[in-house]
């Protein structure tokens, strides 16, 4: 079974999906990510799906689940690099990635996380 690698960059975890996702590797990825977030105390997770050509309801739900898990661990999940064709298919299927933030590419995803972090610091009571 292929394992999707989880990379750490500062306090952000980056997952780039480059393979055809099997159900097993998806479940493994969820566990790996939860472990890594706890282990590193990351404040953000970026899932890059630039190379993914097909997203079905299972993977769509997987993304939502990951977002929920990481939010519990106080880290925001951003899905970046979704292809136009994938977005159209998801909309046509009536699927929405509930609770998942999205950005056009990795760079904007990092910027979004930084922005969120800044906003959180600004409203935090001293």
């Amino acid at each position: 079974m292929d394992r999707v690698p989880v990379l750490k960059l500062g306090d952000i975890l980056i997952v780039s999906i480059q393979i055809d996702l099997q159900d097993q590797s998806v479940l493994a990825l969820q566990e790996d990510l939860a472990d890594k977030v706890v282990q590193t105390g990351a404040r953000g997770v970026i899932i890059d799906i630039t190379a993914v050509e097909i997203i079905d309801s299972f993977i769509g739900r997987m993304l939502s689940t990951i977002a929920s898990i990481t939010r519990l661990l106080d880290a925001e999940t951003v899905v970046v690099g979704m292809r136009p064709a994938v977005a159209i298919t998801l909309v046509e299927l009536g699927l929405s990635l509930g609770g998942v933030r999205t950005a056009l590419n990795l760079e904007k995803g990092v910027a979004l996380l930084n922005h969120l972090d800044g906003a959180r610091l600004a409203v935090a009571p001293r």
């Binding site: 951003v78 899905v79 970046v80 979704m82 136009p84 994938v86 977005a87 159209i88 998801l90 909309v91 046509e92 929405s96 990635l97 933030r101 999205t102 950005a103 056009l104 904007k108 995803g109 979004l112």
Partner: peptide, 12 residues
């Protein structure tokens, strides 16, 4: 609405 939702999914 569909167009807007698709754009949102992509992060715009």
């Amino acid at each position: 609405l569909k167009t807007v939702m698709a754009a949102r999914l992509m992060g715009a």
